[in-house]
Amino acid sequence: MNEKPEKLIDKKGCRLDGRKADELRPLKLEVGVLANADGSAYIEHGKNKILAAVFGPREMHPKHLSLPDRMVIRCRYHMAPFSVQERKSPAPSRREVELSKVIRESLEPSLFVELYPRTGIDLFIEVLQADGGTRCASITAASLAIADAGIPMRDLVAACAAGKVDDTVVVDLFDLEDKLGVADVPLALMPNLNAVTLLQMDGILTPEEFEQAVNMAMEGCKKIYAMQKEALKNKYMAIKEEVEEE
């Protein structure tokens, strides 16, 4: 571990990785990356590297878990043992159980669960490398995987955190800022419906700072949403252009 830096933001307002307060980390999204899944996506968000896959809708196993009037969504968020500095045990931690639940609940509002009663979808998220903000990056990727599986959706879900580092409210905290900062507010948004589907917070914020953080996180979500749409379209436009060039 590096020594704890004195300041997380310098006099010019630059963060440790050189970003401005309202600047996102570089983001790369790719759709349809896994052959065996019904839908899949890969995200690189800063140093986070995460795969998401969707199977279904399909019959539930075991069958008694199915519901007569709606589709059941199961979600597993899991971190690879090598994804962090110290090896993480592959057994699911309490943190992973909680995150699996909140990620699922952040995506459920985007689905028409009543359309396919007695079925289920399984959502698998594997964090290959973690560097702060993995729940948000996971949601962004998982929503794309659902779209790629052709499952009807109300909107794509984009997620981004904001928080407080030193005395400043900033967007999209990376690991060190998350650990040493004052507060972290992960948020997920369906931008076209103006619906917040995930909101958590830890650390201490005044009501004013909280409002500022929510607005900043929503702005981040909107930027990420535009990239999600691009990534989805790219998968299909690539074929179109190839043909037109002939």
């Binding site: 509002p109 419906l193 619906a195 589907t197 917070m201 650390g203 005044t206 009501p207 607005n215 929503m218």
Partner: peptide, 24 residues
């Protein structure tokens, strides 16, 4: 001090940004 120190949204629905500020 009336400051917020932890938040958790739960359930399969959503909140509008206005509702979040109202909730706060």
């Amino acid at each position: 001090e009336g400051n917020i120190c932890a938040i958790q949204k739960g359930g399969s629905g959503y909140f509008t940004p206005q509702q979040i500020l109202e909730a706060k």
